[in-house]
Design a protein around this nucleic acid. Structure first.
Lengths: 222, 222
DNA sequence: ACCTGAACACCGTTCAAGT
DNA sequence: ACCTGAACACCGTTCAAGT
C-alpha cells in the first residue's frame, strides 16, 4: 500500500489534514449523497480545505476510490463461520463477498478492478481457492475457478446496480421493454412466450442458485 | 426503438444531419480515438455542426451510447452455425456474444445495461434459453440460467477491460501486486504459495472453461 | 512539507433566438 | 422543424507562489 513520504525529522509545515481524514470525508459524502457527488472540489469543501490540498494525500481521484473501496471492505467484510464441507465453504465465502458488495452499489465504478484485491478480501479468496483444492482441483484450476466465481459475482453486481440506476434515473419504459414489445413469435418463440414474465423473472435474486451451479460445474468438470 | 417525430407534411426547416449520421460519426470517433474522446462537442465538430444540433436527434449522451452499442451489435454479431446438441448450443451462443463484446472494450460503459437487449442480440438469447429448456430445465430456470450466463460473461468483460485499461494508464506496480508482495504464509498459505504464479494464471483466458462449468452446473443441478 | 489562488482545458445540457 | 450562440454549472489537474 502506498504511504505518504515518511515524516523523518518533520521539517517544514505541519499537516492540517491526513489521508485518513480525506478518506473518511469521502466515505461520508458517498454514503449520504452518492458517488456522483464525490468530486475533489466537494471533498475539499467537506474537509474545509482546497482541492489542491487533497493531492498531497492522494495521488489522484482513482487512488481515492481504491482507498475508499479498501476502507469499505475493511469495515464491512467480516469473516463468517465457514462450513466444513469444502464445496459449501466456497459458496459461503463467495456469497459473503457478494453480500458486502451488493450492499454498496457505488462500488461498481471501482470494482471493475483487476481482482477484488483489497487486503481484507484476501482471506475470502484464500478460502475459495483452498476449498476448491479440497474438492480435488489442482491449484491452477482452483485459481481459474476463483476467477470464474469473481467474474460471475462482479457481473451480477454491475448489471444489477446499473439496471437499478437506470430505473431510478428515467422512469420511462426501458430499452428492453421496448424491444420486447414487438417480438416475432415465429423467429423467437421462446422469448415471445416468456415476454410477459421476463421482467419479474429477471428481477428475482438468483445469485445463489447461479453460484451453486457454477461451483458444482467447476468441481465436477475440474 | 425511439424514433424522431414522424415527418408528416415536412413543415419547417429541412434537416441537415440525421440520426444515422450522428451514430456513424460517433462510431468513427470511438474506433479511432476511444470512448473517452467521444464527447458531444467533439462529435458535433466531427459532423461539422454544433453540440446543440445533436440534441435534436438524440435525447442525451446515454441514448447515444445505447444507439452505438446497438449499431455495433447489428454490425458484428453474426449468427454462427450452432451445434445440434443443446448444451453445446448454449455454450456456442454465449461464446459468440462474448467474442463480439470482448473485441470492443469500450462497450463496458454501456454494457452494464439491463441485459444485453440489443435487438440483434435477441436471437442469441433465444438460442440460450431454448437450449437450456432442451436440456430439461423449466422455462423459468432457463431464464435464470441465461441470466447467470450473462452475469458471468459481462463480468469477465468488465473485469478484463478495466484491468487492461489500468495496465495501460499507469505502468507502475498494480495494487494487487503490492498486496501480494507481503502475504503471511501462516494466515494465507494457499495465496502465499501461489503468489508467484498468480499473475500469469489470472492472465490466461479461461472464459470458455468457466462457461462450460457454469452450463454444466446449470443443466445438472436444474 | 504542506497548503493556496488562479488558471487550464475541458464537460453535458438549457435557454432564447434565429431561419 | 431544425439549427445556432451564448451561457450555466460544473469537472480533474497543474503551476507558481506562499508559509
Amino acid at each position: 500500500m502506498p504511504q505518504p513520504p515518511a515524516p523523518r525529522k518533520a521539517p517544514g509545515r505541519p499537516p492540517r489534514i491526513s489521508r485518513e481524514e480525506v478518506v473518511g470525508a469521502a466515505r461520508r459524502i458517498v454514503a449520504e449523497e452518492g458517488v456522483d457527488r464525490l468530486t475533489m472540489r466537494r471533498l475539499a469543501a467537506e474537509i474545509g480545505s482546497t482541492p489542491m490540498a487533497l493531492y498531497h494525500h492522494v495521488r489522484n481521484k482513482e487512488e481515492l476510490l481504491v482507498l475508499l473501496l479498501d476502507d469499505y471492505a475493511a469495515r464491512t467484510l467480516h469473516r463468517p463461520r465457514l462450513p466444513a464441507a469444502p464445496r459449501e465453504r466456497v459458496v459461503v465465502a463467495a456469497a459473503a463477498i457478494h453480500e458486502a458488495l451488493a450492499a454498496c452499489p457505488w462500488i461498481v465504478e471501482v470494482l471493475t478492478a483487476d481482482d477484488l484485491m483489497s487486503a481484507s478480501a484476501l482471506w475470502f479468496v484464500e478460502q475459495i481457492v483452498d476449498g476448491l483444492i479440497a474438492c480435488g482441483l489442482t491449484p491452477e484450476r482452483a485459481v481459474h475457478g476463483y476467477r470464474a466465481i469473481w467474474y460471475y459475482t462482479a457481473g451480477e453486481i454491475v448489471v444489477r446496480a446499473t439496471a437499478a440506476r437506470r430505473r431510478a434515473d428515467h422512469d420511462r419504459p426501458t430499452y428492453r421493454e421496448r424491444v420486447f414489445g414487438d417480438l416475432d413469435p415465429g423467429e423467437l418463440p421462446r422469448l415471445a412466450g416468456l415476454a410477459e414474465r421476463w421482467a419479474p423473472l429477471t428481477a428475482e435474486d438468483t445469485y445463489l442458485d447461479g453460484l451453486r451451479a457454477l461451483v458444482d460445474g467447476l468441481v465436477v468438470t475440474g
